[in-house]
Simulated scan of single mutants.
Amino acid sequence: MSVPGVGPITALAFIAAIENVERFRRTRDIGAYLGLTEKRYQSAETDVGVGISKQGDAMARHYLYEAANVLLTTVKKRFGLRDWGLKLMRKVGPKRARVAVARKLAVLMGRMWKDGTHFEAPVAS
């Protein structure tokens, strides 16, 4: 809950969905486990990205998406993840930016859980 935008319900849904963070060799696999990666349609010469895969726990994915939305819209503190998300929002649109920030939040929360650390936002320049 020390991550901006992440409240007790989001943290609880994340912990319930992951159960044991040690089963992930790399924490970046958590985003894919929760379905926050791009789904691909590939056939012959066609290769199209069609939204997110929506695999894994729907409730945890929903709460992470909402936490990303709060992080990008209501949190006023400046730090790297928020600035990156706002830049991405201008470039690819708000929905895709929220999914990308939600994926990064999942990876960040997984790393914090694995290491037993708290979130300390470095000030963005």
Rank of each mutant, 00 (worst) to 15 (best):
S2L: 07
V6E: 00
G7W: 00
P8R: 04
I9N: 03
T10N: 02
T10P: 00
A11V: 06
L12T: 03
F14Y: 11
F14D: 02
A16M: 09
N20C: 12
V21R: 00
V21A: 02
E22G: 07
E22H: 08
R25C: 10
R25P: 01
T27D: 13
T27R: 08
D29I: 01
D29C: 02
G31W: 02
G31H: 05
A32P: 04
A32F: 05
L34M: 09
T37R: 06
T37G: 03
E38S: 09
K39T: 02
K39Y: 13
R40Q: 13
Y41Q: 11
Y41H: 15
A44E: 14
T46D: 06
V48K: 04
G49H: 14
I52Q: 07
G56N: 07
D57N: 15
A58C: 13
A58F: 02
M59F: 07
Y63M: 12
L64C: 08
L64Y: 05
Y65R: 04
A67H: 05
V70P: 00
T73W: 11
T74M: 10
T74G: 05
K76M: 09
K77H: 12
K77Q: 15
F79S: 10
D83L: 14
D83W: 06
M89R: 13
V92Q: 12
G93C: 11
G93D: 13
K95R: 14
A97C: 12
A97G: 10
A97W: 01
R98F: 08
V99C: 14
A100E: 09
A100T: 11
V101H: 03
A102R: 02
A102L: 10
L105W: 00
L105D: 00
G110I: 01
M112A: 13
K114V: 10
K114R: 15
T117N: 09
H118Y: 12
A121L: 13
V123H: 10
A124R: 15
S125L: 09
S125T: 10
S125I: 05
